[in-house]
Amino acid sequence: MKNENLYNYILGIADNSLILGQRLGELTGHGPSLETDIACTNISLDLFGQVRSYFQYATKIAGDDRTEDDIAMLRKEREYKNVLLVEQPNTNFAYTMARQFLFDVYHLAFLAELQKSTDLTLSAIANKCIKEVSYHERFSSDWIKRLGDGTEESKAKMQEAIDGLWTYTDELFHQTEADKAMVAEGIGVDVTKLKDAYYARVSEILEESTLETPESKWFQKGGKEGIHTEHLGYLLAELQYMQRAYPNMEW
């Protein structure tokens, strides 16, 4: 492939949306209220829409006969590049919202920078996605506030979720080789520069929600290099089921 760095860079962005969208899709029909059910399904829908834009672009970069579905559904576990955060399970609604919030704050800041990419396709995709993601961020931070500053029970659950997922936040700001190459070309976003504003924003919302910002400095990493938690394999088993069981067919 001529432009392997760009290809890998696009997959790195899109895989986050793919895996998070898949997680949210598990919840459809099982939400705590009809309104939240609709909202979570809607976010999933947005994320899969984004995935399609990115992967369709990636197929052009690859320049062979692979399709968006090949990229989404026919890679091996070690080839998925999403951060560990987004593959974490829907333990309960607090975890689902905490995962969403911790990702959305990053995602919004990331897209704001990606809009400035010298790659016009990526910049156009970012421009479209940012409108959706600013809604996601508002939705999830509202829920952090409701659950954090709701009842004793919800506060305990939300604090536990934030504490539990905190270890996956630092990885958002790690750079892969493809990242570095794309930053050098003016195409990619330098995620290391987003880190301070991210933690400031997250702490601000947590404080408003009467929650503690975790102090732990023990972080997990590896997702961007394809070294995932044990959760991802099962998620992929469902995501890939049809393509694996019925190869080379059109649907």
Binding site: Q22, G25, E26, T28, G29, H30, L34, D37, I38, T41, N42, S44, L45, F48, G49, V51, R52, F55, E68, D69, A72, M73, L235, E238, L239, Y241, M242, Q243, Y246, M249, W251
Partner: peptide
Amino acid sequence: MLPEGNWITRAPSLRRKVALLAKVQDEAG
């Protein structure tokens, strides 16, 4: 929503997955 929600995570293509999500969301609406 439940019988169709049962196939959201296993839809065979991205296009079908998006359409199914949208459909189940319509039903919630």
